[in-house]
Amino acid sequence: MTKQDALFQYCLRLGDDALILGHRLAELCSRGPFLEEDLAQTNIALDLTGRAQLYFQYAADLEGRGQTADGLVYRRPERQIYNHLLCEQPNTDFAYVIARQLLFSAFDRFLLEDLCTSKDERLVEIAAKALKETRYHLAHASDWVYRLGLGTGESHRRMQQALNDLWPYTGELFEIDDVGLHLLEAGIAADLHTIRALWTPEIRQMLQKAGFEQPADDYMHTGGLKGIHSEHLGHMLSEMQYLVRAYPEATW
């Protein structure tokens, strides 16, 4: 594997996390629990979609061959999409939306902080911009975790349920394969061991402060890095890619 191939793959992964979670949040547009929260969630969706564009543009430039960011979004099949499975989990209820955002944004913040010192200048640029947004996403999610945890019996129960259900998707965030290892040695990729050591106590502390039980660390789902997904991604893609696939020459 050349450094260029690894970096291309790495950009796709970073982009896919942002794209898929952004798309999930965009599904909440006009369906938020109330107007202000609806706008908040769509703002986060737009932040994520915006940075996905930057990652994919970089990936497209690395690949050459006239590839575009749009092409990478609309023309890759499910097996060539590499987001973490956490990002594609559905908006089951508001507690799931918040739990997913908390678990991911806490991870993403440490990841982006690490990427700000990467040896790859373009990743540094993207990370520095995205980090500001992600700090806000995390603040927004963690405030809700406290409200729901210390709110009513029902809010507490639903949030605990969401945390328990999504926890088995968190192990995958820290998986390292050849791509990650190759780029870590080159000083480009973020160090997931270090990030795990920061993320774990931070999340534990937040959950404790909000009165939640720490979900058990047993079975962990995996597959995203290899393009093997839960049953949810195919449905998302069929909606997201429908127009371009049905009308390949369409412009708008």
């Binding site: 703002n43 405030d143 409200r147």
Partner: peptide
């Protein structure tokens, strides 16, 4: 609309 100061600031921002 918001339930507390933090939420009010975040909603105002958004």
């Amino acid at each position: 609309h918001a339930s507390d100061k933090q939420m009010a600031l975040q909603n105002a921002r958004d």
